[in-house]
Simulated scan of single mutants.
Amino acid sequence: MARQRQNIQQIQEIAQNTFGYESLKPEQQEVIEAILAGHDTLAIMPTGSTN
């Protein structure tokens, strides 16, 4: 569990430092976690939307 929290924190930091995002949406976080866990992942997400 502590490792998962560390991964989430690292993902958030990368999103902030690389892309300037304050935070990821829960669905974005879920997709990234699945990829990092080695699961085959297909994510279809809308583009051009605002927060």
Rank of each mutant, 00 (worst) to 15 (best):
L24G: 12
T50K: 11
Q16H: 09
Q12I: 12
R5H: 13
Q29K: 08
N17E: 11
L36E: 01
G20N: 13
N17H: 14
L36F: 02
N51Y: 11
T18H: 13
P26W: 02
I44N: 06
N51I: 10
N7K: 15
D40Y: 13
V31E: 03
G20I: 06
G38E: 00
I44E: 13
L24K: 06
I32L: 03
D40F: 11
A34H: 03
A2F: 08
E13V: 11
A43C: 10
I11T: 09
I11H: 12
Y21K: 14
F19W: 06
M1R: 05
L36C: 02
Q12F: 12
I44A: 09
Y21W: 14
L42K: 05
E30N: 01
L24N: 06
Q9Y: 13
D40N: 09
V31S: 02
I8F: 06
T47P: 06
A43H: 09
G48E: 01
E27F: 01
L36K: 01
F19M: 12
I14R: 13
Q28W: 01
T47D: 00
R3T: 09
I44P: 07
G38F: 03
I32E: 03
F19S: 09
N51M: 11
G48L: 01
E30Y: 03
D40L: 13
A15V: 11
A2M: 07
